[in-house]
Amino acid sequence: MARRARPVLGRRGVPLAAVAASALLLCACDAASVDLIPTATPTHEARPAAEAAPVGIAFAPLSGTPADAAALRHPSLAVKIDNHWDARPQIALNRTDLVYEELVEGGLTRYVAVWHSDVPDQVGPVRSVRPMDPLIASPLGGIIAYSGGQQYFVDLMHATPLLNVVADEDDGTLFERADDRPGPHDLVLAAADVVAANAGLAPPPVQFAYGTADPLAAPSLAATPTSRIELVFSESSSPSWEWDPTTYAWLRAQDGTPDLEASGERIRATNVVTLRVAIEWPYEEVPLTALTGTGEAWVSAGGRTAHGTWTKPDAGAPITLTADDGSTLRLAPGNTWIELVPNEGSAAFAP
């Protein structure tokens, strides 16, 4: 609010001689003969000013952005989201804190999308679980939602500490089929209802370290200016990101076409974290992303990219990002996409 200007009090233009004469007369008068104008006596009792209740400010654990502490006291919701071309545009991806993109059968990719600081009413389309999803979601705690899957993969997910919300086990209150989408890419989850019904579960722990809006500026990180990120998961999947300095965000494309969500907005991210991962095949045609151990990593934020390594010692541990100089690779506060690019694929960062 603009501060109101205080009026400047000036002289009335009375001649200086008259002012001086008046002053001499006042000095000559006996103090008792001067009538002082009485001050009005208040007719009400003075009351102390009301004190506003303090508002607790915290930082969202999955995005590093400031938020009302009370609004963060609920679990995160991880959802298996379809990325088949018939599933696009997906619902509410720009309101996620984290999105993990993984290779699935047929050379396509799917997402594990995570909402916590901003939970929408609906998300989707929801698809089935895959064998690497317990490795991705376990460090988050909270809730995991999916449509179903091969029984062995479902059993793996049920063995995690997460609350499983499964369409195959739903009574029809949380999942519904959207009339304007082709099946099986039409399953929508009532996300806000799921979180509200399980609000007593613990909030997620921090997954990544956060810094400033330009966290890669330190010369020791040797970050390079980046205008475009080109990723290849397979012959069928080639997502890319381009840096937009006007919105200070990475804008996503798939197979050379701008990638939109259902709101009509271009899918965007504050950070893009690219991890090179091994792909194993213990389940015949279903690939398994090996997400424990260590590997090559890049963090792209603020129009720069820094190189380093990722480490994840076990299923319950979060991913640790370390720069080539040994320091922690920090992200900018905001949403993050984690690209789990196969070693057989490629990652390129254009200046």
Rank of each mutant, 00 (worst) to 15 (best):
Y100L: 03
P282Q: 04
D180T: 09
D86A: 15
G107H: 14
D244Q: 02
A2Y: 13
D170H: 10
W310C: 01
F349C: 02
L288I: 09
L189Y: 03
L24A: 12
P204D: 03
R304L: 07
V154F: 14
G141Q: 14
P204F: 09
Y146S: 07
S138G: 10
L321A: 02
V14Y: 11
A190T: 06
A17W: 15
L288Y: 13
D97F: 06
D133R: 11
G308S: 02
I279L: 14
P318A: 10
I229S: 02
M1V: 15
Y100S: 02
D133W: 11
P239C: 12
S227V: 10
V232H: 09
T109V: 13
A71H: 07
D168Q: 15
T322H: 10
P139L: 13
L103P: 05
D97P: 01
Y146H: 13
S236Q: 15
L72G: 05
I136V: 15
P182E: 06
R268F: 06
R177K: 06
V154D: 06
L62A: 03
H44G: 05
L25R: 12
P161Y: 15
V123S: 01
L93H: 09
I229V: 03
H44D: 05
S263M: 09
R127H: 05
D244F: 09
T270P: 02
E51A: 09
S63L: 02
S138Q: 14
P287E: 10
L16H: 11
N335Q: 14
A253D: 07
L251S: 06
D155I: 08
D97W: 03
T224P: 02
G293V: 03
R228Y: 11
R11G: 02
N83P: 00
T65A: 11
H116C: 02
P351G: 08
H185K: 11
R3I: 14
V99H: 08
P75C: 04
Y248S: 15
G142I: 01
E169M: 10
L156T: 05
G10D: 04
A87D: 01
Q122L: 15
R177F: 08
E265Y: 08
R12I: 03
R47V: 02
S263F: 07
L331A: 00
T322K: 09
V55D: 06
A40Y: 08
I229P: 02
G183H: 13
V129Y: 12
A192V: 08
S138K: 12
V341A: 05
T309K: 11
P287W: 12
V99N: 05
A60S: 14
K312V: 01
A199F: 10
N335A: 13
V99R: 07
D170L: 04
A306L: 00
T322N: 10
S238W: 10
V129P: 04
G293Y: 10
